[in-house]
Design a protein around this nucleic acid. Sequence first.
DNA 1: GTATGATTTAAACGTATGTTTGAATCAGGT
DNA 2: ACCTGATTCAAACATACGTTTAAATCATAC
Lengths: 211, 211
Amino acid sequence: MSQPDTKQRILSAAEHLFARDGYHPTSLRSITTEARVNLAAVNYHFGSKESLLEAVIERRLSPLNKIRLAQLEALLEKTERAGETPTCREVLRTFVEPTLCLRLQGSDSENFLALIGRILADPRGVAMTIFMHHMEPLMNRLFQALALSLPELSRQTLFWRVHFTFGSLSHIMRCHERHAIVPEDVDIEMPVDDLVDLFLDFATAGMEATQ
Amino acid sequence: MSQPDTKQRILSAAEHLFARDGYHPTSLRSITTEARVNLAAVNYHFGSKESLLEAVIERRLSPLNKIRLAQLEALLEKTERAGETPTCREVLRTFVEPTLCLRLQGSDSENFLALIGRILADPRGVAMTIFMHHMEPLMNRLFQALALSLPELSRQTLFWRVHFTFGSLSHIMRCHERHAIVPEDVDIEMPVDDLVDLFLDFATAGMEATQ
DNA sequence: GTATGATTTAAACGTATGTTTGAATCAGGT
DNA sequence: ACCTGATTCAAACATACGTTTAAATCATAC
């Protein structure tokens, strides 16, 4: 009974448990149990727990960033051909929409969202370095595009507002279940498209605020 | 050579290390070493590692929330006497300013900010429950006040925008050191007062955005 | 000075962890 | 059928952890 998908099963189980409980509290034994795989399989296929975490990140972040970058470049080309500058909302959408849409592609991707939220909350963690390595080209391009769409902002103000925006986004990514205090008359369930618009209303207004 | 401040030294060392490395990766041995205290002192004075975390949170969160609540109540009284409603910016300031001002009171408080940022990033963590217990009365009052200052918003929209705002704030709390990608011409250093205003510009505009 | 309770200390305990090992099993080619 | 390299497996390894223990030390009151 061979199982050629051992690596993928480990990746999915690790993604799930890292996202739910965090990297350190999750043991290799709980991962291999959930993946119905021998304990030694992780070290055999990935080398170490830390390398497994890298692989988990890489598996989803690479394609996601490809999509985000492609959408951003397409927007910049389109507006340039028309002799216009892109709006802040359009630029942010190229980043935010592919992110939150991971929720639609099954629960695995949803786990990944929560995991990234955790990584962003651990500035000195092992994952931050490799995460930032993946993000750097996209972030630079995004910053460029936002500067184009908000020419009246100083570079410093722009940087901080991008920082604030990413803070909000990482917060949403983490909390697909309620952990905030929710007034009893508020329904927290929401289709992804509506959430994207709700977020873009907020973030665009914040980015475009008059000082 | 008695050391009646053993408990406080443990609390400060734990606050520092929990904030820097996270709860799980931090060992009692590293805490007691940094506090120059015997290993068994933690279990003697606090009972367990988890109870120590609770004590760390309690020590600073209680006075902080007292200040935040007092400022909020003062604002609400003042505006009510004047027959006005508070502005969204004023309401948010009562929460944000005491928070970020912890940076001014020495490095210990700064550590606490980062720790809270971590707690908010771990929805199922042991600390979230006791943190939320401390926050609930204040959050309810804050939500009330924001609803007063933004009467045209639906409860649901208001909730989500508060959620976004707290996401931004927790992100700042975590990252007093640079971990985002910073363009080389941007100076990230900033006085606390300026940061408060920069954040309130962003958050107020986001909260008040026309849908 | 001595007795008493609180605190500190060094050492050990039991357990859980990431990793390694070496034999067993599998798949594919000749 | 047999060899070969890749993969799986149960077991063990070394280490680090949170916690407990019991003796030693301290502070305080009589």
